[in-house]
């Protein structure tokens, strides 16, 4: 029979519980990140020579923004650590300053995140809103997509109409090349007639997507909504992983803010223990970012 002392972990309740909570968080983030990595690995190849996952330029992911956030989070982790050490050394004022700096750095992280999200919202890079050229669909399915599903065709048409509306019919003889191309593409999205006056089917969303991507490559100034193969899947993964992480950062900031307010009031002797437990959570959120950052911004 083993003795009592060797079986105890010699950890205070709070720290042990936090570690157990972090164990559940490890499982949570493993499930989440594994899901996203799997979906990415298994995403169907949209066409010959095409990448199944949108390139960073296509979806406007800037690795340097992620790098800035990495630095911000690591520095904030360092500040929590230094704040805790100052508390242990009975330097309450120093601890308060380090904790305040942590809050600022954490808020800056969320600010950068918000800047990124704002860009995505502006460009319409949101789950369920991205045009996709789905290949290999039966005509019936394409018809459904055209009629009911994708507003993509309508969005492109609107953009094309806006582009060509500024040009008066009499100027159409010598418009810029890109306007000519836009006008031509707009005609292709509508019911048309060919030279022999027989019916010409409008472009399916898939075909339109290919045309739009080609035009965007040729005339970047057109800013047509691009068709991104697996774009909605990318947006789902991007927003869910970074969003859930940002919620964790926010929760950590709230906890640290409460502790900061505590530290303003009285020098509670329990503050050091509480800060250590809250710090564990904060460092864990930081650690998750270290894994999330390469997955989203580098790979």
């Amino acid at each position: 029979m083993t003795t009592q002392t060797s079986e105890n972990l010699n950890l205070p309740n709070g720290k042990l519980a936090m570690w157990l909570f972090l164990a559940t968080e490890v499982m949570f983030f493993t499930g989440l990140l594994a899901t996203c990595m799997l979906l990415r690995e298994a995403a169907p190849v949209p066409g010959p020579g095409l990448s199944p996952w949108p390139a960073h330029e296509t979806v406007h992911v800037q690795p340097w923004l992620g790098a800035i956030n990495t630095v911000l989070l690591i520095c904030s982790s360092l500040c929590v650590l230094l704040s805790h050490r100052a508390l242990l050394a009975n330097q309450a004022g120093k601890a308060r300053r380090w904790l305040g700096l942590t809050l600022l750095l954490g808020a800056a992280f969320l600010g950068v995140k918000g800047f990124e999200y704002a860009g995505k919202f502006q460009l319409g890079l949101l789950p369920g809103k991205i045009g996709e050229s789905v290949n290999g669909l039966s005509p019936q399915r394409e018809k459904l997509l055209q009629e009911n599903g994708l507003s993509y065709v309508r969005d492109v048409q609107e953009r094309l109409r806006a582009l060509t509306a500024t040009v008066k019919p009499e100027d159409l003889k010598t418009p810029p090349k890109e306007i000519q191309a836009a006008h031509a593409l707009l005609q292709l999205t509508l019911d048309g007639k060919d030279e022999k006056n027989s019916y010409l089917r409008p472009l399916t969303p898939g075909q339109l997507g290919d045309q739009v991507n080609r035009l965007n490559g040729e005339f970047p100034s057109l800013h047509l909504p691009p068709a991104i193969p697996n774009g909605n899947l990318w947006a789902s993964c991007y927003f869910v992983t970074t969003g859930i992480h940002a919620i964790h950062v926010f929760a950590g900031l709230v906890v640290l803010l409460v502790l900061f307010l505590f530290s303003l009031g009285r020098d509670s002797p329990r503050l050091a223990g509480r800060l250590e437990v809250a710090g564990l959570y904060w460092h864990f959120v930081d650690l998750v970012w270290l894994i999330l950052y390469p997955i989203i911004y580098i790979l």
Partner: peptide, 15 residues
């Protein structure tokens, strides 16, 4: 490899 090293360092130091 870089992720692994970073996580080890962060765990050993911060946590």
């Amino acid at each position: 490899g870089v992720i692994f090293l970073q996580v080890i360092l962060a765990g050993a130091n911060f946590m």
